[in-house]
Design a protein around this nucleic acid. Sequence first.
DNA 1: TCATTCTTTAAACAAATGATTAAATCAGAC
DNA 2: GTCTGATTTAATCATTTGTTTAAAGAATGA
Lengths: 204, 204
Amino acid sequence: MATKKAPTDETTEEKIKAAARKVFTKKGFSAARTRDIAEEAGINLALLNYYFRSKEKLFDIVMMENLQQFLLGLKSVLHDEKSSLTEKVAVIAEEYINMLKANPDLPVFVLTEIRTNPEKLADTMKVKTLLLESAFFKQLLAATKGKMHPMHLLINIMGLTVFPFVAGPLLQHVGSLKTEDFHKLMDERKKMIPMWFDSILKGI
Amino acid sequence: MATKKAPTDETTEEKIKAAARKVFTKKGFSAARTRDIAEEAGINLALLNYYFRSKEKLFDIVMMENLQQFLLGLKSVLHDEKSSLTEKVAVIAEEYINMLKANPDLPVFVLTEIRTNPEKLADTMKVKTLLLESAFFKQLLAATKGKMHPMHLLINIMGLTVFPFVAGPLLQHVGSLKTEDFHKLMDERKKMIPMWFDSILKGI
DNA sequence: TCATTCTTTAAACAAATGATTAAATCAGAC
DNA sequence: GTCTGATTTAATCATTTGTTTAAAGAATGA
């Protein structure tokens, strides 16, 4: 028997997964064709089914990893007992914006597929308990002073951070921005979002 | 020749358009099948091509109308010379939230399709000039006091208002919210968003 | 009523697409 | 080298899906 190769990024299996992530994330499940993925990966079409029984199985794997990237990248920040709420918001904004600059299609993809297939979220992800038991959430709750649902503040942080990427092409068109200009704006927001968040807190 | 019927909502043509809007908006262009639309409309499949030469032509029409609804519903507000910036934000939040409660799939649909097909936006829409020449934009520009790109404030308004609907299912899952609870939160935001916006302005 | 045109229907077509097969090729064990 | 199992390839299959066709039905005007 052939010894199992170490799964470097040069494995056929890894090439397929990388190509699948790219094509799925860009076009969504339905519009992505297995032939697109095979071509992107530079492999024979049949290998896709050889390594991952079906398009859907392959999708599930990529989807899971995308979700992880989108939701669980901030685990350590959320549980940091020492940093203040505003400091956490600064880290979240910084990390998300960096990640989204590199993966601008990720949020629309994730949010579309969650919308299409909400049950997959519930099964696989523990994001809910992760968040609710975090130091971050406790601080969020404290900051509301009982005057509003803490979800509002969470929505605001996410909205200020993620939304510009969701609406990227539209905003670039309206603002006559090149991708470079857009990225510059997004970098500016890394410092601004925690300040805006503070302003909001003061106004409560 | 048959006299042209008045295009009530009972016309076959209108039934197809309504069904198409529903199916396209929910599933996106690729995942929507012409047979889905025909069934939803309760008409024979061939009628779809009889009235609208192709799936894509039908899509373009629905897309245009969705875009109009998403972007141009606020024309009168934007050009109101009398109201203050904050008052405009209040109206925008109020109207958008009402519209989005009734059409929760609209933003993801519009933003996905703009992403997939950015050129369609440029041709058909005059949203850019509409916005840039509005009283609203002038007020936005004045409010920045030259300290930031006015686009930041626009992004914030949209992000605070639209994002919760984009991320709706995810937020409902994380917050253990029923649709009713979620709508209640959204209603609360109608008053809160202009206040938050004011807080942000004060902090500039 | 008859003729004409518009509308609707059932059936079929052609292309696209996910999946499978059978043979060829490769890599390692002996 | 030879054997064995894993990997890869080209070809093919079966289904889905957008579209078309030809005929039937309904409406309108003479």
